[in-house]
Simulated assay, not measured.
Amino acid sequence: MRVVFQAPEKISAICAVLYRAGALDRADTKALAEAAGITYTTLTDAVRKRRLSPSIEAALAEVARFDVSHPSWVDDAVPEATRRHDAKPDYPGRDTVEHFRTQLSATWGVGMVSFSAAQAGYSALDAHMVRHQLSDLGQITPAGNDMQFFFTAHFEPFYHRSGMMFGFRKAAVTIEIQGPHNAQASGRLGYPEPAAIGNATIRGEATTHQLRWCVERDAESQAVLSGEYATSESPLLALTGYDDKTALVSRIEVNLFDRTTIATGDAPELGINKQALIEEIFARELPNAEQRRGWVVLSEYETEIARYER
């Protein structure tokens, strides 16, 4: 087996170029594995370890039309120990993903395909109460790479004309993936282990298409969700299998009839009478809550992916 420098990036480059040339119907590793006649898990395991067997190299070279002896694939002049590590500014080899992509694009006579996401719609029950966005932060994602989406939300306590102040101790974040493609989450913040987000905890569920998280103030806290909550260091999710016009509809929802959700600003344990009054207020002002068993969408944000060629 040979160590292939930047193996994951080179596999992504193959997916992108072959998709652009029409040789793959999807710019992802599973489609490449099928085209090359390689078991998907065999390919992904080898790529993750950066060690490819001669049979895997030969199958990839045949479907992607490159020469495994070309230095843009593996530069044998570079010691294996050096090729095993991630790229560094002073890497001496000729087998960087940039060189390989250039060589492969020239062979197929194609340019590059990339993707980015933009806001396609937004609505909020009251933007002063809760608002949010789901964004790729303006990144350009080459075809074949997972797209990363970051989440930002802002919560504020609010006042009713009765004089009571309300807030939420927990909220659900849901994402519906729309489109004819087989897009799904390849990674989710807060799953399988919960993660910190501001002064709260986020917990994700195992689903990969209809996505759901719970954001909740720490158990020992007596306060409600307030201020900004952002996944600034790690994305909320990584998306694979997407294409042009794939859309993500994200929502922040709360359950008005769940007595662990709503709180007054200074008294997290609501009495039965006060809780009943809150439920009555919301049921009257938001009649749809009753039809959805108490669930109300406070903020909805639609993000759409666009494909670019160059």
Rank of each mutant, 00 (worst) to 15 (best):
residue 287 P to I: 02
residue 48 R to H: 10
residue 58 A to Q: 11
residue 33 A to G: 04
residue 16 A to C: 05
residue 164 M to D: 15
residue 187 G to C: 09
residue 22 G to E: 03
residue 224 V to Y: 10
residue 296 V to Y: 13
residue 301 Y to V: 00
residue 144 G to M: 09
residue 128 H to R: 10
residue 27 A to P: 13
residue 237 L to M: 15
residue 147 M to V: 01
residue 275 Q to D: 13
residue 22 G to A: 01
residue 212 R to V: 06
residue 4 V to F: 15
residue 209 H to Q: 12
residue 6 Q to E: 15
residue 145 N to M: 07
residue 149 F to L: 15
residue 88 K to Y: 07
residue 201 T to E: 13
residue 238 A to Q: 14
residue 88 K to W: 08
residue 211 L to H: 11
residue 242 Y to F: 11
residue 264 T to C: 06
residue 85 H to C: 02
residue 293 R to I: 05
residue 251 R to Y: 06
residue 267 A to N: 15
residue 52 L to T: 10
residue 183 A to R: 03
residue 236 L to E: 08
residue 121 G to I: 07
residue 115 F to V: 03
residue 200 A to R: 12
residue 223 A to T: 04
residue 171 A to Q: 07
residue 251 R to H: 09
residue 267 A to Q: 15
residue 278 I to M: 14
residue 140 I to H: 13
residue 154 H to R: 13
residue 219 A to W: 13
residue 138 G to E: 09
residue 46 A to D: 05
residue 179 G to L: 04
residue 56 I to G: 01
residue 273 N to K: 07
residue 154 H to T: 07
residue 263 A to I: 01
residue 133 Q to L: 12
residue 274 K to H: 07
residue 25 D to M: 00
residue 12 S to Y: 15
residue 64 A to V: 02
residue 189 L to D: 03
residue 281 I to S: 04
residue 58 A to M: 04
residue 48 R to S: 06
residue 247 A to F: 10
residue 234 S to M: 11
residue 27 A to K: 09
residue 258 D to C: 04
residue 194 P to T: 00
residue 7 A to H: 13
residue 173 V to I: 14
residue 179 G to C: 03
residue 196 A to P: 07
residue 1 M to K: 04
residue 46 A to C: 03
residue 150 F to C: 02
residue 291 Q to I: 00
residue 268 P to A: 08
residue 125 L to S: 13
residue 79 P to W: 05
residue 168 F to G: 05
residue 63 V to Q: 09
residue 149 F to G: 05
